[in-house]
Nucleic acid binder design. Structure first.
Lengths: 244, 244
DNA sequence: GGCTGTGAAATGGTTCACAGCG
DNA sequence: CGCTGTGAACCATTTCACAGCC
């Protein structure tokens, strides 16, 4: 109810950035990169380039402080710098990628996956065929050596891209190695001790959501299957997170 | 943007299922598969196996109707069947996968990616080296033939796993081929006409969120690096039960 | 007694709309 | 005058807590 003075803001430091906002900051960075040839950009332009509502963008940026100029917009360079700083780009985190199959290889090469302060510090696999070979200039190590290698390389984040069967074991090993931030692409539930931040990405999930909507659409007797050239409703817009 | 009257409940058909619930139903199916040896499961058990709160699970299932028995729990088989039906598993959608690099290959082989009513109906690429070869029993076709092949194969969902540069073109081609549901792994913004459901998955996003939290943790002078059995403070932690 | 199903409260996030500044 | 920054309204989702049924 009552809105007391934000102690963080008052103290100069900033803190409570909503989770949803954090998730969009990276998108803003990409949008800014596209607009890097311009000096300034309005919230409207930036929002369009990032695929979000301009009010959302302004509110998001307001959590970082005041980096815009009224009547003008945001200085692209300044804002890029600031968002990068907030996202922790200056911290140069080192990432370990466990499981170098197709997915792992894709991740290692994914545009921007390892940019902005993130670098792959180590690659692991169990397959003796793969161990010892190189990808992106890094030698693939055996998972058995995970703990010592992670410590040596100063790994702070682990990515699990192994088949589901090995995921829990890998997570345990990462935790034992002192890694407290883990991203897993394994669909099963993995348990980690309190204090470890575990995030799960399910590649099949979004597809299933899509299939659900498509299925509904067919059932409710929508147009069979043909591309409606373009609707008159100015609803088109750039694709956001939610298509509907 | 506009608020229509709930037509589902009025028509006797299933009511509108919240987006957040849809996103969890697939996870429940997986949890049920794990528990398939048991006859029944309580909301508590199921929730633990799926990694969610039991109240959330009960509310979610309540949108599908009453499939539980008070004092007992849910019949695993019945519930599996019902969720599958709601997700549209009986519709047997056919999916086209465009871009068969590492990511595409990973997707084609991803556990559960193509289960539950989803089958890969076509693979496409531009690379002449790849076109003509086979993956998972399917011959890779050239993207130029996308429209005719998609129509012939009855494709209703398209997945874009190409480099960013080609993504918009592929999306256009899919739309032209009558595909109205598209999943893209390309980080850039893609625009599609109204009526097309476009979902974007950014593989780098979750990692960046993780890095943000990790970075914060380091800044706020948390424990350096060692797995402490730690803190009573209800920290983030996404996990289900204890060790399997 | 135990567990589901669900109103109601709490929380979190988005959008509106406009005051206020450059 | 244009555009940011932000209270306030709105909407979605989660969580609580308990009535009702087996």
């Amino acid at each position: 109810m009552n809105q007391q003075v934000d102690p963080d803001r008052a103290a100069g430091r900033l803190r409570a950035i909503p989770e949803a906002t954090v998730a969009r900051l990276a998108a803003y960075l990409r949008a800014l990169a596209v607009l890097s040839s311009t000096e300034t950009a309005s919230s409207e332009e930036l929002a369009a380039a990032a695929g979000v509502n301009s009010a959302t963008l302004r509110k998001d940026l307001s959590y970082l402080g005041s980096y815009g100029v009224r009547g003008v917009g945001y200085d692209v360079e300044v804002l890029t710098e600031e968002i990068g700083r907030v996202l922790g780009a200056h911290r140069k985190q080192r990432v370990a990628l466990v499981g170098v199959g197709n997915l792992g290889a894709a991740l290692a090469g994914y545009t921007g996956f390892m940019s902005r302060g993130l670098t792959v510090g180590a690659l692991f696999d169990v397959d003796p065929e793969r161990v010892g070979s190189e990808i992106a200039g890094l030698t693939i190590e055996h998972v058995d050596d995970l703990a010592p290698v992670c410590r040596r390389e100063g790994i702070s984040i682990g990515v699990i891209a192994t088949p589901e069967s090995g995921a829990q074991l890998v997570a345990d090993a990462l935790v034992a190695a002192g890694v407290r931030s883990i991203l897993t692409f394994s669909p099963g539930v993995i348990s980690v001790p309190a204090g470890v931040d575990l995030r799960r990405v399910d590649l099949a999930l979004e597809l299933q959501i899509l299939a659900f909507h498509q299925s509904r659409r067919e059932e409710t007797g929508a147009v069979p299957a043909d591309p409606a050239p373009t609707a008159p409703t100015g609803d088109i817009v750039v694709a956001g997170l939610d298509g509907s």
